[in-house]
Lab assay of single mutants.
Amino acid sequence: TTLTVNTQTYTFTSEEEAREFARRYGAKTIRKTNGTWEVHG
């Protein structure tokens, strides 16, 4: 199964959650914005 996250942004309140998600789905960018963490595919 392949998950494609081209134009979607996922927002997390903790860096740990964001990094775990990025690691699991191979997202390329993690960015902190206004106190939340954004993961970009």
Rank of each mutant, 00 (worst) to 15 (best):
E38T: 07
G26V: 02
R23A: 09
R31E: 08
T13L: 10
N34D: 13
W37P: 00
F21M: 03
V39P: 00
V5E: 12
R24K: 12
F12D: 00
T4M: 08
E20M: 06
F12T: 00
N6F: 10
G41C: 15
E38C: 10
A27H: 13
Y25M: 13
V39I: 04
T29H: 10
R19E: 10
G35N: 07
Y25K: 05
S14F: 03
G41T: 15
E17V: 04
T1M: 12
G41P: 12
I30S: 03
G26K: 06
R19Y: 10
G41H: 14
R24V: 07
R31G: 03
Q8K: 11
H40T: 15
G26H: 08
K32D: 03
E17A: 09
R19Q: 08
T9Q: 05
N34H: 03
E15C: 07
W37L: 01
W37I: 01
Y10M: 07
E16H: 09
V5N: 12
T1P: 14
A22V: 03
T13A: 11
Y10S: 02
F21N: 01
L3P: 14
S14I: 04
G35P: 01
N6D: 12
L3A: 13
A27Y: 15
A22E: 02
L3R: 05
R23L: 08
G35F: 03
T29I: 15
K28S: 12
T11E: 05
E15P: 02
E20A: 10
G26P: 02
G41I: 15
N34M: 04
T9M: 10
Y10T: 04
V39W: 01
F12I: 00
E17R: 04
T11Y: 13
H40K: 11
T36C: 14
G26W: 03
N34E: 06
T29R: 05
F21L: 02
K32T: 09
T33G: 10
V5D: 12
G26S: 05
E20W: 06
E20Q: 07
Q8S: 10
F21V: 02
T11Q: 07
W37N: 00
W37F: 04
R23P: 00
Q8E: 09
T9H: 09
N34Y: 02
Q8N: 10
V5W: 08
E38G: 02
R31T: 11
A18H: 00
T11K: 08
V5P: 14
Y25W: 10
E15N: 01
E38R: 02
R24D: 03
E17T: 04
I30K: 03
T13S: 11
I30M: 05
A18V: 00
R19S: 05
G41E: 06
T13I: 08
R19P: 00
T2Y: 05
T29N: 06
T7M: 11
E16G: 05
A22S: 02
E16F: 08
N6G: 10
S14K: 04
T4Q: 12
A18R: 00
E15V: 05
E15I: 05
E38S: 03
T33F: 09
S14M: 03
F12N: 00
E16S: 09
K32N: 11
Y10H: 08
S14H: 03
A22T: 01
V39F: 01
A27K: 05
R19M: 11
S14N: 11
T4E: 12
T2K: 11
T33Q: 10
T9K: 09
E16D: 09
R23I: 06
K28I: 14
R24L: 10
E17N: 03
K28Y: 10
L3K: 09
T36D: 05
E38D: 02
V39D: 00
T36I: 14
E16Y: 08
N6K: 07
G41L: 15
N34G: 07
T29Q: 06
A27E: 03
I30H: 04
E20N: 07
A22N: 01
G35M: 03
I30C: 09
T7E: 08
T4W: 06
T33P: 11
Y10E: 02
T13Q: 10
T7D: 09
V5M: 10
L3M: 12
V39A: 02
T13E: 11
Y10I: 06
T29M: 15
A18Y: 01
H40L: 15
K32V: 09
R24C: 06
H40P: 05
T36S: 08
K28V: 15
A22I: 03
G26N: 07
A22M: 07
G35H: 04
L3C: 15
W37C: 01
R23M: 07
E17D: 08
T13K: 09
R31S: 07
E15G: 02
H40Y: 14
G41D: 07
F21Q: 01
V39T: 02
N6V: 12
A22P: 00
G26Y: 03
T2N: 13
E38A: 04
E17P: 00
A18C: 02
A18E: 01
T4S: 11
E38L: 08
E20F: 04
T7Q: 10
G41F: 15
A27W: 15
E20Y: 04
Q8Y: 13
T7Y: 13
G35A: 03
T4G: 13
T7L: 11
V5C: 15
F12C: 09
W37E: 00
G26A: 05
T7A: 09
T2P: 12
E38Y: 07
R23S: 07
G35L: 04
R31F: 10
K32L: 13
Y25F: 11
Q8F: 12
E16P: 04
F21I: 01
R24N: 05
W37M: 01
K32R: 09
R31Y: 10
N6P: 13
V39Q: 00
N34V: 02
E16A: 12
A27F: 15
E17L: 06
F21D: 00
N6W: 10
T11R: 09
